[in-house]
């Protein structure tokens, strides 16, 4: 399997936190993600997941260690990484003054792709997420689930090497979230994109991931769970519950540790 994401001993220190004292948000995180792999990063609220996401996106450079995505550093090679890494955030983050198709195609517009081509590509992805016919609508005319579908098509339209889902289904109702998770996973599998799913929802992590990494606080990997082989077992449902309990215990013990 070709490694697409390589995170080595990443650390992030801040000069001053809420209390004015220096603090470490990410202590020591290392992991890699291969092509077509879905790695779920799980942890309690405030454990440093958002900081890790910002570093993966290249919006915040690490204090120590290195992140390589398709051989490039997301922060140091900021513009060279254009289109290689896409993100779906907790809220849709659509630009309200842009129509659905203009929102979906914005990544291509940033990359100066000609209008006809970017519209054609955006239409393909909008159709894949079930939004054909809604191209000229504005975000406020869509439901929450539909808006998140536009956000998903916006992420896939640039044909990225890595897709980052940051609590992407966290604000939706359970039924919509389940449907959207399934559709999103089908697109990830179809496009063979490496995916990093950041979530605090253990059930979601077990449903989506080929591997689940559990973060402690400050962020460091405190346990890792391979799920590919387990999923093939006839008693996967039982095994899944065991892994869930194990993850829960790990996070819980970390809270008091």
């Amino acid at each position: 399997m070709i490694t697409v994401v390589e995170v080595s001993s990443v650390r992030k220190d801040y000069g001053s936190g809420l209390d004015g004292n220096p603090f470490t948000a990410v202590k020591d995180v290392s992991f890699s993600v291969g092509e077509g792999e879905v790695v779920c990063i799980c942890g309690k609220t405030g454990c440093g997941k958002s900081t890790l996401v910002n570093m993966l996106l290249g919006l915040d450079p690490p204090s120590a260690g290195s992140i390589r995505i398709d051989g490039l550093s997301p922060s140091a090679d900021f513009f060279a990484m254009r289109g290689k890494l896409a993100a779906v955030f907790q809220t849709d983050r659509l630009l309200p003054w842009r129509t659905v198709i203009d929102n979906a195609a914005i990544g291509l517009e940033v990359a100066n792709v000609p209008k006809d081509e970017r519209y054609a590509r955006a239409r393909v992805w909008l159709s894949k997420v079930g939004l054909s016919g809604w191209e000229k609508a504005y975000p406020h005319q869509l439901s929450g689930g539909m808006r998140q579908r536009v956000a998903i098509s916006r992420a896939f339209v640039t044909d990225p090497k890595v897709i980052l889902l940051d609590e992407a289904f966290g604000h939706l109702d359970e039924v919509t979230a389940h449907k959207l998770r399934q559709d999103c996973m089908a697109l990830i599998t179809e496009s063979r994109t490496a995916a990093i799913v950041v979530t605090h929802n253990i059930t979601e992590a077990l449903e989506l991931g080929t591997r689940v990494l559990v973060l402690g606080k400050p962020a460091r990997v405190i346990s890792s769970h391979e799920l590919v082989e387990l999923r093939r077992l006839p008693d996967w449902a039982i095994k899944r519950d065991q892994v869930r309990s194990e993850i829960f215990r790990t996070i819980d013990s970390e809270s008091f540790g």
């Binding site: 900021f78 890494l85 896409a86 993100a87 955030f89 983050r93 940033v110």
Partner: peptide, 8 residues
């Protein structure tokens, strides 16, 4: 944050 992640 979303727009910056598109690297304009």
């Amino acid at each position: 944050q979303m727009t910056r992640s598109l690297r304009p």
